[in-house]
Design a protein around this nucleic acid. Structure first.
Length: 378
DNA sequence: CCAACCGGGGTCTGCCATAGTA
DNA sequence: TACTATGGCAGACCCCGGTTGG
């Protein structure tokens, strides 16, 4: 899955933006000043330039990266009567730091067009699901857009009711709001569509309890409601056509081991699968073996071309056979660096990788270390 | 006691396109 | 016609440990 990479991307992004704010604040200031002059020069008939000047000063005081913000949503800067002060006070009252507020506005400027009253209402709706203000702030810091993109609180309320009506627990709703907050700013219609699709799939595959199927799949994959029905449908079809399973087995697959595969962009799923197939066939596997291999651990489909190939290659370099590899698909779970360091340690300890089991390459640290210690004593 | 089996935990944003709206 | 609300997209693992069966 992507989360780890996303985490990486996100953290570098946050770091970059902070870097930007501190390192280039002088530049930001100069840009906003020139904009102000530009504004005055252009519209000296009404009060708009003055409004903008006030807005810009407010934003600079808060510490907003105006350059970034304007690039993202220029329209907001032409609006009069923005509510940046109200927003700031509101978020502060909920315990957000100035830095977080600045980051929120920098990344989603439209937030400052929201009225305090509606913000407060929205916050209370989120609070029905979350346990503390801090928990909400953490989500806003990660994803300001999911909270601020819509002001339709009625829709939000209906979404909450709808999700409960599907039979999701308090805990699951909380997980959804934490992990896939966009679910709640989807239109009710959109969420209903996805649920309807899942229901249809389960019925057409002969599931006796569609609601149970839906709960299972959302539990396994809390991100499903922020995917397009097009993507999910295409991925289910991909799984169906690729693995050629009977209904029962396909159902188990998509609300179990392959639930997360439904999120991946279909082209990549196909591409990654094709890559696995080509690579293994070129190494002498039959297509049937490839199918069995991937089916035994569908998460393999998340592996991009390079990663998959690199992992296989680093195993082959140790004269490990393809037959051994496809016998232990889980070892491809381990990072390349883990694989490499463990192989080295095991070889040093006299462990013959060509004739012994490979599973220990993907054991937890604790178990692996214990094993290695024993090998070294022997 | 050992390893296999298997499920779980972390975890999805920031951007673009485009109808709709004032 | 500028702006808003909303849908949709790309992106592309790694690790841990309880339970079970030998």
């Amino acid at each position: 899955m992507t989360p780890r990479d996303l985490l990486y991307m996100r953290s570098t992004f946050v770091f970059d933006s902070r870097f930007w704010v501190t390192r280039f604040s002088a530049e930001v200031l100069s840009k906003s000043v020139s904009f102000r002059f530009f504004g005055v020069k252009h519209d000296d008939t009404d009060t708009e330039p003055l409004e903008n000047e006030e807005l810009l000063n407010n934003l600079l005081t808060i510490g907003v990266d105006v350059h970034m913000a304007r690039k993202r949503q220029p329209g907001v800067f032409n609006k009069m009567g923005t509510n940046e002060q109200g927003l700031k006070m509101f978020l502060m009252s909920k315990g957000a730091s100035k830095k977080v507020i600045a980051s929120i506005i920098s990344r989603y400027p439209r937030a400052m067009t929201r009225k305090v009253e509606s913000l407060s209402e929205r916050w209370d709706l989120w609070k029905r699901i979350m346990t503390s203000d801090l928990e909400i702030i953490n989500v806003l810091e990660r994803s300001p857009e999911s909270f601020f993109r819509s002001e339709d609180n009625q829709n939000l309320e209906k979404n909450i009711e709808f999700l409960y009506s599907v039979g999701l627990s308090d805990q699951l709703l909380r997980r959804l709001l934490n992990n896939a907050p966009r679910t709640f700013s989807n239109s009710l219609h959109l969420n209903k569509q996805m649920i309807a699709l899942l229901k249809k799939v389960s019925l057409s595959l002969g599931h006796s309890d569609p609601e149970d199927f839906i709960r299972k799949i959302i539990f396994k994959n809390p991100f499903i409601l922020i995917q397009s029905t097009k993507r999910v449908k295409a991925n289910i079809e991909f799984l169906q056509s690729t693995f050629n399973l009977n209904n029962e087995k396909l159902l188990i697959l998509i609300c179990g081991p392959a639930a997360e595969i439904l999120d991946i962009s279909t082209d990549y799923a196909k591409k990654n699968y094709m890559n696995i197939k080509e690579k293994l066939v070129s190494l002498g596997c039959t297509e049937e073996e490839v199918l069995k291999f991937v089916l035994s651990y569908p998460d393999l489909i998340f592996l991009g071309e390079k990663k998959f190939s690199d992992k296989i290659d680093c195993l082959l370099e140790e004269n490990i056979s393809v037959a051994q590899i496809i016998e232990s698909p889980r070892i491809l779970d381990s990072s390349i660096s883990t694989l490499k360091s463990r192989i080295k340690e095991l070889v040093n300890a006299g462990y013959d990788l060509r004739t012994s089991k490979l599973n220990l390459l993907s054991w937890s640290q604790k178990r692996y270390k214990a094993k290695l210690k024993k090998l070294n004593i022997e």
